[in-house]
Design a protein around this nucleic acid. Structure first.
Lengths: 221, 221
DNA sequence: CTGTTTTCTTGATCTAAGTCAAGGCAAAGC
DNA sequence: GCTTTGCCTTGACTTAGATCAAGAAAACAG
């Protein structure tokens, strides 16, 4: 198990900060453990801090009135979440749940705001992260409203393969049910899309590993 | 025509800042004019600054491969836009176009970063703005993927009536075609929904003015 | 290893909403 | 004034994807 300091040092949020600042951050963080399936916060909860993932995997999601779920983010080690309401001063806008056994670092609101006020380079990092989230949401909204399911699947695969640094395969790293929830579709539909795309020679599905056979054609869907 | 300083002072991004900081911001801004329909920037353009609307109205939108347009925002006086890529150092993620004759303030990237580094309270104000917008996107995603068109129309009307400070009517202020685009639907479908909701005694449509007849029932759609 | 639970796949059916088409209306321009 | 252009509405038709259902394949717990 890594110590708090090394986790903090690797988080993009704190990149470029001097050692003494990192230690100061370490002083205000609290480590918390969550079991698989355990709730971290609920939509509407008051927010008195945000989280950084030390180990594990977490989902942030919305629930419809009928209990249907849409996953907004799936986050892994080093990534912060729940930071939005820290600044808006409003309750959490979505739910969060641990997908596996996870260890999280909790940063209390007041202490963090003090820190960020005193440190311009931390501010810039935070701006970059918030901007990035905004951009991701922009893409998600674009996909949901302009593309149909096959198009969303294709752009997800292309985006992830870039992100993972490969050009001919993608490791989904999440269940297909969860992927369906992220793409705004049902598991049945996603399954059919994978089958169809396989028939068309676009991809090859082996469990959670998707081999990209025709990248070119995939971009035009 | 208002002067630059009074526009800056009213912008949510800078509201509440002391006079001297406002003047510093004023010093780095450039005023630019745009005609109706004129492009402000395109998706993929390098971002060397962002904009604030002094006068007029602007849309920020994405284009699908087939040329279908999805409006992300319609912005009016005092509202900033294009600030997202300033910090992440990425190109513009969407297109922007002036809907009417507009005057915009342009804030160059380099000068602005310098300013922010020197002003922590400016940062905190801007964090709050970004966070609010992220919250709004969260709601938009929820609406798109968890609700059907009638539900989206209903929540838009309810949200806007609150926003405008009325409880029994809404002035759309944009064309129904544009509204349809914002809600991820076609103009035909929106028209049918308005007709249906009128039949059901939920609303009354008079051009761009929508009278809310049964607020209670509208929330349950 | 074995039973249990969850995930995944495939088929049959249904429906919300998109597309195509045509007519009416209103604002903008000559 | 008239004409043009774009906006809005309504109808007929089509289709993408949801739902329901049931079996196969993994993942998990004891």
């Amino acid at each position: 198990m890594q110590n708090i300091l090394s986790v903090i040092a690797k988080t993009p949020l704190f990149k470029g900060l001097p050692e003494n600042q990192l230690k100061e951050i370490q002083r205000i963080t609290v480590s918390r453990s969550y079991n698989k399936g355990e709730a971290i916060f609920f939509e509407g909860d008051e927010c008195n801090g945000f989280y950084i993932i030390a180990q594990g995997q977490v989902k942030v999601f919305k629930l419809s009135f009928e209990g249907k779920e849409h996953i907004l983010h799936i986050l892994g080690p080093g990534e912060p979440f729940g930071e939005v309401p820290v600044f808006s001063g409003r309750p959490f806008p979505a739910n969060s749940q641990s997908l596996v056994k996870s260890r999280l670092l909790f940063l209390p609101r007041a202490a963090f705001i003090k820190l960020i006020t005193a440190n311009p380079s931390l501010s810039l990092n935070m701006f970059a992260i918030l901007s990035m989230r905004l951009r991701e949401f922009t893409v998600q909204i674009e996909n949901l409203s302009l593309k149909e399911v096959p198009g969303r699947v294709a752009s997800y695969l292309l985006y992830q393969s870039d992100e993972q640094g490969h050009h001919d395969f993608v490791d989904l790293r999440i269940s297909k049910k969860q992927l369906a929830s992220m793409l705004g579709a049902t598991p049945e539909t996603l399954s059919r899309m994978f089958a169809k795309m396989s028939d068309q020679g676009l991809i090859e599905v082996q469990g959670r590993l998707i081999r990209i056979l025709d990248r070119q054609r995939l971009t035009t869907i």
